[in-house]
Design a protein around this nucleic acid. Sequence first.
DNA 1: GAATATCGACGAAACGATTCGACTGATTGT
DNA 2: ACAATCAGTCGAATCGTTTCGTCGATATTC
Lengths: 338, 338
Amino acid sequence: MNIGEIARRAGVSRSTVSYALSGKRAVSEVTRQRIQAVIDELGYRPNATARALREGRNRTLGLVVPPARGRLNLMQLEFVASVMEAADRADLDVLLSSSGGDHDRSFERIVDGRRVDGVILMEIRLDDPRVRRLKALRLPFVTIGRTARPQGMCWIDVDYATLVGRCVNHLADLGHRHIALINRSTELVASGYGPAHRAREGFADAVARHGIGGMEFCCADDASAGETCVQEILRAHPEVTAVVTVNEAALPGVQRALEDAELNIPARFSIAGVAARFWAEQFRPQLTAADLPAVDMGATAVDFLVERIAEPDGPPRQHLFVPPISLRNSTGPAPAAH
Amino acid sequence: MNIGEIARRAGVSRSTVSYALSGKRAVSEVTRQRIQAVIDELGYRPNATARALREGRNRTLGLVVPPARGRLNLMQLEFVASVMEAADRADLDVLLSSSGGDHDRSFERIVDGRRVDGVILMEIRLDDPRVRRLKALRLPFVTIGRTARPQGMCWIDVDYATLVGRCVNHLADLGHRHIALINRSTELVASGYGPAHRAREGFADAVARHGIGGMEFCCADDASAGETCVQEILRAHPEVTAVVTVNEAALPGVQRALEDAELNIPARFSIAGVAARFWAEQFRPQLTAADLPAVDMGATAVDFLVERIAEPDGPPRQHLFVPPISLRNSTGPAPAAH
DNA sequence: GAATATCGACGAAACGATTCGACTGATTGT
DNA sequence: ACAATCAGTCGAATCGTTTCGTCGATATTC
């Protein structure tokens, strides 16, 4: 059941059927209705592949997610969901690809088979080979996170430096004088993961500004690492009365370690950070944290990409998200020194 | 940079380039190398859309996930990741589509634009309009979960009835005589969600077999619903000493409510169920539960689908997963009656 | 009333690959 | 030595759309 068959049964030419459907040229009302009747009867829908070939675009965007190895997290999940929703609104399909490993077959397939009109790249590294690839292919793309030299590119990012800085400010205002940062894993830092680097910088700046003690700890993205990380902090720096965390996956372990050390939150210990709302609310007491705006980010990424596909040489759009810090119950005045 | 350009520069015809690449006909070694040199120089990759049009297949499978509304959960996330991985191994791309709402535009686009060679349908209902649609279009598909009449279809599912039954057996063996089931939400049950129905049946059968008291409670898929659900159970049925749960998202709330009621686990209260390993390990003490085998399920679904695409009229493959129940620390002997 | 728009429809040429049949030399078999 | 095979290549058709140019027929304009 292709357009030729419809044309034959309606007694018109293929082009007339096409114009009747697209409305790009006038078609008399009677033939239009005759054609529509045949279409309804046979349940014809134009073949998307043929259309894509002819039009030179696929009405599809590629979404490159981190490989399953590195465990997609809940925040990213929410992001993916919101990208789908936004793409759907723009009548675009979403082709998934995981990448970040050594041998990114699906990335190659999608990108150099020209299966997509544009790409959203998650979990970008400061120096990212995929970005170079997309630039070389002149395929429109938007990155979630920035490379080291983000000028001239299209990206959205979360301003970890500012957010971590604000957390430090908040804790310092409450009288805390020794604060630890629970950052992401050493591997992630080593591989040039922007948020981890910028959290580090924002933290260092803020503690320096306040003239207070600050120490950074890297921590793998899971609960048990969070537990040992806190134990380590408490052992090596008993003077610490508050932590800032950007490692949401470690939170359950952080909680356990603090409970085991009988450090009541927020009476004897404070904690603030950046996390998806799910994790912040899961914490007990609920975590004072900047909630990652996954839904906004997904919608914005799609908007930027659509715009760039329409106008590949337009000005590159960029947006830094600085979500407000939701005051919950995990921070309080520093305990009196004993 | 299309195949014609390559042919021109290599001084051969387009068909020769094609045969050199596919190996479907003999090409002399010297011309093959000449062609390869041109290809390497220009970085040519065949256009996937044109190939798809000609070959009549897209090397793409559709993955239909529940809409963002109904919140994709971690187990589903793991499933999606494993589908991607398996598809990648089979050199297939994955086109995402969310569906389940009233107005499934992306499902329509993917399915009747013939953008995919087959579909994996998650979160199937006992009577599902999408299944009828796919059958009518004669598009190969595999469902995750069964419809009410699953004969002749391709599906995989988790045997909730058996698993819940085994949990009841386990608890009964430990001496528990009054057990509650924490099922999924009433809406989900009402909409004909198979796992919820089968959990109910398995539970009813098992408590009857043991001649013990069993009562079922529906509970929305979130922590606070879990909390009120347990409070309700304890209030209305103080004789209950154990629960079986198939509602992983409610677990954190269940935990809170039991803690608040000062019911130590497993000394004074036991709990077992079906859950993704993440949730089971998140529970304290860790939950005795059948771990949902998301990774196996994803790989199996892709296998079945690939097979069915290759042979649309072959025998429909089906598989019921009955993952073993991992004994952890949340179940113990029933407390002596007081 | 002749020149000129305008409308509605048609045919053919793309888009970029794959594949079938045919053709040319060279090799083999008898 | 003549037919049969075979390796290597080419041209043309095809997949299902969209769109450009064209062309009657009717309507508009001076």
